[in-house]
Design a protein around this nucleic acid. Sequence first.
DNA 1: CGGCAAAACGGACTACAGTCCGCTTCTATT
DNA 2: AATAGAAGCGGACTGTAGTCCGTTTTGCCG
Lengths: 220, 220
Amino acid sequence: MTITPGDLFTPRALPLLDERPPERRDAARNRMALLEAAQRLIEHYGIDKVTMDAVAEAAGVGKGTVFRRFESREGLMAAVLDHSETEWQAAVISGPPPLGPGAPPWERLLAFGRSRLETSLEHADLIRNAGRAGTRSFAAYSFAAMHLRYLLTQLGVAGDLQLLAVALMAPLEAPILDQQVRIEGLDVGRVYDGWADLAGRIVGASPYPPPAGGASADRT
Amino acid sequence: MTITPGDLFTPRALPLLDERPPERRDAARNRMALLEAAQRLIEHYGIDKVTMDAVAEAAGVGKGTVFRRFESREGLMAAVLDHSETEWQAAVISGPPPLGPGAPPWERLLAFGRSRLETSLEHADLIRNAGRAGTRSFAAYSFAAMHLRYLLTQLGVAGDLQLLAVALMAPLEAPILDQQVRIEGLDVGRVYDGWADLAGRIVGASPYPPPAGGASADRT
DNA sequence: CGGCAAAACGGACTACAGTCCGCTTCTATT
DNA sequence: AATAGAAGCGGACTGTAGTCCGTTTTGCCG
């Protein structure tokens, strides 16, 4: 390996900003084509019928390319899922209240729960096929947990917020909801009320009990 | 199809009790052989290396037999898992306190949490490979939920006990613990303390607040 | 513009889950 | 003990995820 003088003195155009040797144009094009093809096929045939070969062919690329880009079937599904997750994050950060900023924290918390409940059920198959045993992607999970910690802080909740956030999210994860709603046949409204009750207990048992008039599920 | 007089009048030896045309002896023998082989191979090579062909061969049967008995790879893994689940249930029903009967309900609740936490981590790969997106078998799940409802009742907790039970179990499910412990690197003790705190909040926010002196994680 | 190394491509190849169907073994009956 | 038919068996066969490696494309440099 030879080092030329140029290598030593050229900081290759500000490495501070945009620090990745990014993606070749054809690669980027193919990634888009694959994501779109996958989404289209899933919508059309149902996720269980969608094979990697089919996605590759629909996107007009070879099979190897699919795996290089997305690692595995699970990786591809996770990537498709990330689209909606990103939209959801945008709604939380800058969407209309009560999910977005502007509403009082307790209202936002309730909206958070309802919204998670809905999206978990809506994307159940995608989540299941995205691996990680039904959990969402790490990034998505972290974001939600962070937001939740923020809301709990706003509500003056004391304790290990990291873990309380998990306790609030866990019952809203897809596999558990699937079990309750699809197998045990529970009503979605009841599940939501139960979650709101849980939230109330977690928030209300704090030194500063803030939520006065609860939403649909008011606590005794 | 011909019906002989005998068919009409012989209630074939009390169908009330033992109402199943059960399993042929060779079939039963094969089931055992398969379960043992699977367990042995998993222990020896790690679960990801164990193929259905290998299990079949190790048990000395054909591949078709494996699938007839256990439906699928997930089914086989679930069956292996059920062994330990059954032991756990026995410990809850008739084992020594505080997990078993004899201790006050709050102690039993804490023991329940710790025990679940441990078994979830211990059997993480098995649970993951047993499908249902990381949830345990329906029977096991129902049993735990029932026991939890019972304990909550004993503690005088008011509310939708079905859902509160789920809220208490969800953070102890394998995929979530995996995320926390293996990926985020959280300390197991801290996770347990967090769960105890959660339990305290759920129990304590009831009209009748019973748990006076909490265990390792005492609430403010 | 021509050359070059790195990155990307694609399709043949492998490994494993799950199916199928003709053959064997068991059990109940007489 | 003989027999009939149900239950079980097993291994060849199929479909799909994932790998490998020789070929092509791309971006850069002189």
